[in-house]
């Protein structure tokens, strides 16, 4: 497999990170190196192996359905970039 500049741009766009032409070219060089390393994985036959998501073979613990949180809006919004009337403000979506 070889990465292309288009792959980099597509992925940067999915990840919402503005990337200039130079940055993309640079990223392509580094990521190609890294993927060469990653490709070693493909040599192993894993058809009989189950994927492992967690190291402990445990199941999800559940919370009782109870309200435990109180309103901390003022504290939380004291560190927000822009708020008004209790709302977080963001620029409008451009069509």
């Amino acid at each position: 497999m070889s990465l292309t500049l288009d792959d980099i741009k597509r992925v940067a766009n999915l990840a919402c990170i503005e990337t200039s032409e130079t940055e993309a070219t640079n990223a392509l060089i580094h990521l190609s190196d890294i993927f060469n390393l990653i490709e070693q994985m493909q040599a192993v036959d894993t058809s009989s192996v189950n994927p492992m998501s967690h190291s402990q073979d445990l199941v999800q613990r559940l919370r009782d359905d109870m309200v435990t949180e109180s309103d901390q809006r003022e504290l939380f919004q004291s560190i927000a970039p822009k708020t008004d009337s209790g709302l977080y403000l963001v620029p409008k979506v451009l069509e």
């Binding site: 822009k82 008004d84 709302l87 403000l89 963001v90 620029p91």
Partner: peptide
């Protein structure tokens, strides 16, 4: 998302 005008921006209520 509340699209009424808040200083020309969109308001977010979570």
């Amino acid at each position: 998302s509340l699209h009424e005008d808040f200083q020309g921006m969109t308001g977010i209520d979570l």
